[in-house]
């Protein structure tokens, strides 16, 4: 019983046998009545079932697919305006950055990149070729390869984005910012490379952040601040809701210095904010604003810090007042 060529039989039934294997099987089957019987049993088992078809409404599904595609096509027509800069450019590896110098030796091919960028007040979602999703916050840009390439998945970020990386242990996903490289296998995390510190926050999975000298491994709910000038890295635990609030169109300030808050508002609303007195930057604010107007947020800041604000026609905001200790 155990010396029956079950693999050969299965290869034959599933149409994977080579001509040589077919002949080998034929010889085995014709060698004895027992063999014939065994082969028969496999063939009956193979042909026994008829799988049923699920009851689905294919016509309706096809209509809805075409409806979706209509929408997509309309959107992409609208998008040809300069709001959403979509620059697809062929960049040779040498031109990209020093990160790639090593790979020139290994593969002299060209990688085609696309750039997605957002203006202030605008956010967008990008689907990468590997199935990963990138949510790009306002005033940010992401350069990403148009096609999957063999060894790694590398993208370049300016500003802030939340990454949902599809798992592929053989191809690490690396996000380059000017200060650090963040590497993952499959996970979701946020990077804000917008201010004097680069902040990486992990939602799920495991992330490695490294610069030229050192590296840190982050786990879910962990947060790493990297000071641009010194390279100093500070690890902390965070409330994910705060770090990822921007994805819900929400600004969260949790005991933040007023000048940091101003940088965030500048990017969010596309304005320039000037603090008239340096003492104002000592003020700290806390608050959650969901889908609010700039004026509303400034009023709230006025209420908590006493700072006066003035919005001029050219989108310049001036904060004045005696400030905080």
């Amino acid at each position: 019983m155990s010396n029956e060529p079950s693999h050969l039989i299965v290869r034959y039934l599933s149409n994977e046998a080579t001509p040589e294997e077919q002949e080998e099987l034929l010889n085995w089957v014709s060698a004895s009545a027992d063999n014939q019987r065994i082969f028969q049993q496999y063939a009956v088992a193979w042909n026994k079932d008829e799988v049923r078809i699920p009851v689905v409404n294919k016509t309706r599904a096809l209509q809805s697919l075409n409806g979706h595609i209509d929408l997509i096509e309309e959107e992409s027509l609208k998008r040809s305006r300069p709001l959403w800069l979509k620059i697809a450019a062929t960049v040779t590896i040498l031109a990209i950055s020093s990160f790639f110098v090593w790979s020139v030796v290994l593969s002299p091919s060209e990688i085609e990149y696309a750039v997605a960028s957002t203006i202030s007040g605008q956010r967008t979602t990008i689907q990468l070729a590997d199935g990963s999703t990138v949510h790009l916050n306002a005033s940010s840009s992401l350069r990403y390869p148009i096609q999957l390439n063999d060894d790694t998945r590398e993208v370049f970020l300016e500003g802030e984005a939340f990454f949902e990386v599809s798992r592929d242990p053989s191809k690490p996903f690396i996000v380059h910012t000017d200060a650090v490289a963040t590497e993952v296998l499959g996970t979701s995390f946020n990077i804000n490379a917008d201010s004097a510190t680069v902040a990486v926050t992990v939602a799920t999975g495991k992330v490695r952040v490294s610069d030229h000298l050192k590296q840190e491994i982050l786990l879910p709910n962990e947060h790493l601040d990297i000071v641009r000038h010194s390279g100093e890295m500070n690890r902390s635990h965070v409330e994910l809701g705060v770090a990822l609030a921007w994805m819900n169109n929400t600004i969260v300030f949790d005991d933040v210095a007023l000048d940091d808050a101003a940088r965030k508002l500048e990017r969010w609303y596309g304005v320039k904010i000037v603090l008239e007195s340096s003492r104002l930057s000592h003020c700290r604010i806390t608050g959650t604003y969901r889908g609010e107007s700039l004026r509303h947020v400034l009023e709230a800041i006025h209420f908590t810090t006493g700072a006066q604000f003035q919005i001029s026609d050219n989108g310049r905001v001036t904060l004045s007042g005696k400030g905080c200790e």
Binding site: S6, R11, L13, S14, Q41, Y42, V44, A45, W46
Partner: peptide, 17 residues
């Protein structure tokens, strides 16, 4: 893939027997 198919077919066959 092949191993899984062999396994499947052996189970179905044993069941028939």
């Amino acid at each position: 893939v092949e191993n899984q198919l062999v396994k499947a077919l052996q189970v179905i066959r044993a069941n028939l027997l």
